[in-house]
């Protein structure tokens, strides 16, 4: 059986819908992982041990196991305790939490690297501890880790293919649907790969611009 790409245009809509959902879940999970990362970092560094230790255990577990396994846990685990989330929500939750843990590691190091004088100065000016963190320390810490967080976001885009296994109709699953009707796996996976590659290039361009702006604000 040779290659025949003439079947592809007939599934243009299916593929484009897949592209849309891939971008949607990547953005949703990226936003979740960004703010989740800050939240986890603050808890790990400043919360009392009763809270921060279980948190560290959770981080350790999420960093030491495959994303695919975590997606199965979240999707089926939530069903088991009676919460039947749509696949899209479960998928963004799983992806977002997974990368929030990685972002948290970066942000923790970065918060600790912000000069101590910043916190002291803010406290002297009458800001509370929470306010000093929110307005003085965290903005500086986050600015410094934008490039590595950007790398995590690009990894997230590629890992979004995994949510196809829990039934989110993103690009990978869309390709599979087309394959189911045409029996032409090579053609459609190749098309999906090209789409991912283009989205990836677009995302890299956006991140580079963001990095430049952050650099300029120094």
């Amino acid at each position: 059986m040779g290659l025949d790409f003439s079947v592809v245009p007939g599934f243009f809509d299916v593929i484009m819908q897949g592209v849309f959902w891939t971008i949607a879940i990547t953005v949703a999970a990226a936003v979740l992982s960004f703010f989740g990362g800050i939240f986890f970092a603050v808890i790990a560094l400043y919360a009392p041990r009763v809270i921060s230790w279980p948190m560290k255990g959770f981080e350790w577990l999420f960093m030491g196991t495959p994303l695919l396994l975590q997606l199965f846990l979240i999707y089926f685990g939530l069903i088991q305790i009676g919460i039947d989330l749509p696949a899209f929500v479960a998928g963004s939750l799983g992806l977002g939490l997974h990368f929030a843990v990685y972002n948290s590691e970066l942000i923790q190091t970065s918060i600790l690297a912000v000069d101590k004088g910043q916190m002291e100065a803010a406290r002297t000016l009458g800001l509370s501890r929470g306010q000093s963190l929110r307005y003085i320390v965290i903005p500086q810490a986050v600015r410094d880790v934008i490039p590595p967080i950007g790398n995590n976001m690009i990894a997230l885009l590629k890992d979004s293919a995994l949510v196809s296994v829990i039934g989110v109709t993103e690009l990978t699953l869309s390709a599979q649907l087309a394959i189911g009707r045409t029996y032409r796996p090579f053609e459609f996976y190749a098309v999906a790969a090209v789409c991912y590659y283009i989205i990836n290039l677009g995302m890299e361009a956006v991140l580079r611009r963001l990095e430049r702006r952050v650099q300029a604000s120094r």
């Binding site: 040779g2 990978t172 796996p185 090579f186 996976y189 790969a193 590659y197």
Partner: peptide, 19 residues
């Protein structure tokens, strides 16, 4: 590095026989 590992795997395993 620009495409998902899962797609590469599928392309090789399911698409491979075609080529």
């Amino acid at each position: 590095r620009g495409t998902p590992a899962l797609i590469q795997l599928f392309l090789l395993y399911f698409g491979g026989p075609q080529i």
